[in-house]
Design a binder for these strands. Structure first.
Lengths: 116, 116
DNA sequence: TGAATACATGAACATATGTTCATACATTTA
DNA sequence: TAAATGTATGAACATATGTTCATGTATTCA
């Protein structure tokens, strides 16, 4: 029998544990943040939020190699944060869905309202 | 004179570059996502969203050492995502930033609606 | 006052991540 | 069809990150 800190209310805490998202969901959310924590990928999302772009256009605006951009796009694609459309020899990327839009927008707002 | 892909519209792209958040802001947003990409820190935020908790309570619910929890809390604190209140010998942590919480919840929705 | 409890911190280490380089593939253009 | 253009991928590497262990500090309780 383990002794606990007096603040611990077992039934309450056990209920709370049931209440939060399960491991699988946590892992997937974590993967999303893992993806967009990279400055390059974050910039890509901000850029694509202005208009859909092919890899060349992104390459024109970012200070990393085209290879790095393609790798980054793959990560974003695999999490369904962006999607591709083939247009001749171009790969045109765009923001995948409204959730992602909302996330980008919240980031913007957070920045605007935060003077720290 | 560099030759560009025909899709590149220099004036447009240069305008877009001005439009997205600058380096400093990108770095800061990136730091926030970096912080909440850790599964432990993500769980901490979900737990604290239910009620404020001392380190003991978090320790009771998480499968990492108390040391790891303290380290994680420090990261969250430094970004002002959580704050501490001292209560006797207890350190009571609580959520500080609503925007970030909103972003986390959006991700949760994104994940739940995604069957991939 | 001494022991116990709650929490924080630094060092160390294994693992994960982002980038570049080299190269391959696909589509277009001359 | 050959060359050029646009994109993707794998290997390699330097760096960053999360965790644990060991230990330190502060507060409480007996």
């Amino acid at each position: 029998m383990i002794k606990h800190c007096p603040r611990i209310d077992d039934p309450l805490l056990n209920k709370i544990i049931q209440d939060i998202p399960d491991e699988m969901v946590i892992t997937r959310i974590s993967a999303i943040f893992q993806a967009i924590h990279s400055e390059t990928r974050l910039k890509i999302l901000f850029l694509l939020s202005k208009k859909e772009m092919c890899v060349c256009e992104l390459d024109y605006m970012l200070d990393v190699t085209q290879s790095a951009i393609s790798h980054s796009l793959r990560v974003l694609r695999q999490l369904d944060l962006v999607r591709v459309r083939k247009d001749g020899k171009f790969a045109v990327y765009y923001i995948a869905d409204d959730h992602v839009w909302a996330i980008i927008d919240l980031c913007r707002k957070h920045v605007m309202e935060c003077n720290s």
